[in-house]
Every structure is written in C-alpha cells, then in structure tokens.
Design a protein around this nucleic acid. Structure first.
Length: 108
DNA sequence: CTGCTGACTGGTA
DNA sequence: GTACCAGCCAGCA
C-alpha cells in the first residue's frame, strides 16, 4: 500500500530541485538548500535526502561542500562509482573540481 | 509546546 | 592535513 507521505513545501521544493539536476552535474547541500529557498538549510536538506527513497531523486548527485562526497550513509564507494559513471572524476572521497562542474542552477 | 537528532557549513586551533 | 565548536533548519517523540 502506498504510504501517504507528508511532503511539506520545503521538502517538495528540495526534491524537485534535486530531480532537476542533469547528469554529469553535481550540487552541494547548500546549493540545493539555496535553490529550494533556504540557503541555510543544508542540514535539513541532508535529512530529506536521508529519506530519499525516490528513484526520481538522484541523491548521489548531491555532495557536500569543498568537493567532498559526504552523506550517503557512509556508502561513499557506491556514490563514487555512480558519479564516476556519470563522467565525474572522483579521487578518494574527493571530487576533482576541475571535472566536477557544479550545477549552475536555475540562475538568478 | 519543548528537546533531540542529523546524508551540513564555515571558522578556529 | 585533522579535530572541535557554534549556527542554522526540518522532522519526529
């Protein structure tokens, strides 16, 4: 049975933003929070990702700031493989910023 | 309502 | 380079 999920405005917005991330592009929790309308809600975004049981939401494209993978329940190996499969170069839990272009977002 | 947790960030040591 | 601290926000008991 389908469970009724309580999606608040902010949560829905965050999920939508992550879904909008094109392949080969990454966004940090802070960026996602900023696109969702709460530039300081990086933590809240992490909590939402934690519940990201949605295949529509490529949570592996959401990384921590400073080019670090972060999150993913510590399964950085899986995250690293997924990102690498998308054309991003990852070295030791660290994304090569030269190859990792941050998603420009909707733009101001 | 209050309090705690956490897939975060930036700064300082 | 790593370690610790304080601030911010949403979800849940």
């Amino acid at each position: 049975m389908v469970k009724k999920e309580r999606i608040s405005g902010f949560t829905s917005r965050v999920l939508a933003v992550v879904r909008r991330i094109p392949p080969g592009r990454i966004a940090t929790y802070g960026d996602v929070a900023r696109m969702a309308g709460r530039p300081r809600a990086a933590r809240a975004v992490g909590n939402i990702m934690r519940n990201c049981n949605r295949p529509d939401v490529p949570c592996h494209r959401v990384v921590a700031a400073g080019g670090r993978l972060g999150g993913y329940g510590g399964n950085l190996g899986l995250k690293r493989s997924l990102l690498r499969a998308e054309g991003l170069v990852v070295v030791g839990s660290r994304i090569r910023e030269a190859n990792a272009r941050r998603w420009p977002g909707p733009g101001p």
